[in-house]
Simulated assay, not measured.
Amino acid sequence: MKKLFLLAIAIIGFSTLSNAQDISKNALGLRLGDSDGFGAEVSYQRALGDNNRLEVDLGWRDGKNYDGFKLAGLYQWVWNIDGGFNWYAGVGGGLGSFSVDNPNNGNDFTDTFVFAAGDIGIEYNFDIPLLISLDFRPEIGFGDELYDNNDLDFDIALGIRYQF
């Protein structure tokens, strides 16, 4: 009976280990979403272990009356749902700067800000080196010109990344 019990434990343990999450060492692509007016972001992910990674995103915008950039860094934990489907959650923060020139009334302003962020999402890892994700990133910003108070943002984005 003991041998049967130990054999069952070994089989369950082996099947759990063989289904463990294997995330790509590197992934580079775009994160397309709201990004608080910063549009598309260049996104890089670096595996730090079997089920955690670091994501760094850089978004920028340059227009006739608006310039800005935003840099975000997040530590993420990744869990396998089934097959190529994973879900992930993370925490992090970043910094940014923007400048608005209003030629109509002369109310020009510039602000540099820092923010704290959370992240939760779902992703699909294709058999080819392509990763598609959809995530939700609440952010709270701290700066002088952020609507005269702390700015709370809810960012939703689609990510498309090449894995290598």
Results as ranks from 00 to 15, higher is better:
Asn105Ala: 02
Ser15Ala: 12
Ala10Gln: 04
Tyr162Glu: 02
Leu17Phe: 11
Tyr66Arg: 07
Ala27Arg: 03
Gly143Phe: 06
Asn102Gln: 07
Glu145Asp: 04
Asp22His: 12
Asn52Glu: 07
Asn52Ala: 08
Asp34Thr: 13
Asn102Pro: 01
Val100Thr: 11
Arg161Cys: 01
Asn150Met: 13
Asn65Val: 11
Arg137Tyr: 00
Gly93Ser: 08
Arg46His: 15
Tyr88Arg: 07
Gln21Lys: 12
Glu145Lys: 03
Ala117Met: 06
Ala40Arg: 02
Glu139Ser: 05
Asp111Lys: 06
Met1Ile: 11
Leu4Glu: 15
Phe38Lys: 00
Thr110Leu: 04
Asp144Gln: 08
Leu152Ile: 15
Ser133Asn: 01
Phe5Pro: 00
Asp135Val: 02
Asn104Lys: 15
Gly106Pro: 07
Glu123Trp: 00
Gly84Trp: 00
Gly37Ala: 05
Gly39Asn: 10
Leu146Gln: 01
Glu123Met: 07
Phe38Arg: 00
Leu134Trp: 09
Leu152His: 11
Ala20Val: 06
Arg53Val: 01
Glu139Ile: 01
Phe113Met: 09
Asp155Ser: 08
Ser99Cys: 08
Phe142Tyr: 14
Asp50Val: 09
Gly59Asn: 05
Glu55His: 11
Tyr66Glu: 05
Asn149Ala: 15
Phe142Lys: 12
Asp153Ala: 15
Phe113Glu: 08
Asp67Thr: 09
Leu28Tyr: 15
Gly106Thr: 08
Ser18Asn: 13
Leu48Arg: 04
Ser43Gly: 04
Phe14Lys: 03
Phe38His: 02
Asp22Phe: 10
Leu71Ala: 05
Gln21Tyr: 10
Gly118Val: 05
Leu131Ala: 04
Phe85Trp: 15
Asn149Trp: 10
Asn19Glu: 10
Val56Ile: 14
Arg61Pro: 02
Gly39Thr: 04
Lys3Trp: 13
Phe85Arg: 04
Lys3Ile: 14
